[in-house]
Design a protein around this nucleic acid. Structure first.
Lengths: 118, 118
DNA sequence: TTGACATATTCCCATATAGGTATATATTGC
DNA sequence: GCAATATATACCTATATGGGAATATGTCAA
């Protein structure tokens, strides 16, 4: 026994710099694999493999267009990372305590208004 | 060549569920290794090794007290993770677009020193 | 000193995985 | 059908690393 099966979670997917790079490239718009290969300088199989990992944790999704697959970000998959790390946010900047209040306020409004969650 | 040396960054340190667990246990107060061993159910060497990784990325620090070492969280080391993932935040909740404005505003104030009006 | 306790380190092993190369699959055009 | 293009997968290798056990280091007490 060695590693716990951490593979299939967003934290692990995002721990790889190359995958963060890919996500960053997809952040503004969808792109075919081909384009990611050019922009990252990685080999095509490598990009496909990174995309697979990202797909498996739901961080990206593919839309088929002819022989291309246009990948795009599916941000909600990154929420667990955000949620976890934000719990530490108030520890590094006191000004974010103000932000905490803002979040509380927004949350309150959300709860009272609609109940739409992803 | 296989893996890039991703070891020494906060993303990787935090990709391990056990290490997140340890950080969570240290979030409210400092604790000796011993206590972390009990609370996590891990072996003592394992805890020490996880703590070492966390130390190397600056996520925790140790204070010596007799033969104990009291570990505590050093949150700023987690900022890169927060900063990176927050860029995706607006993609999963439209209400956070308002939050982006707040962040922009806070950042602007920070950059300009203090209490600047315009 | 000895001995108990607290923590870190070393060694070994099993596994996960990133990159590389080759190949498979699928789509489009001739 | 064949060829070209686009992407995914399989296989290999090297390496990083988590867990386990044993050991080393360091501290306190008697």
């Amino acid at each position: 026994m060695s590693r716990l099966p951490t593979t299939a979670d967003a934290f692990n997917a995002v721990a790889e710099p190359r995958r963060r790079e890919i996500l960053d490239l997809l952040a503004d718009r969808e792109r075919p694999v081909n384009e990611l290969v050019e922009l990252t300088g990685l080999g095509q199989p490598q990009v496909s493999k990174h995309l697979r990992v990202l797909r498996e944790v739901g961080a990206v999704q593919a839309r088929e267009e002819g022989r291309r697959r246009l990948y795009s970000v599916n941000a909600p998959a990154l929420r667990p990372v955000f949620d976890w790390v934000s719990r530490y946010q108030h520890l590094w900047e006191e000004r974010f305590e103000r932000l905490d209040d803002v979040l509380e306020e927004l949350k309150k409004q959300e709860d009272e208004g609609d109940g739409d969650d992803d």
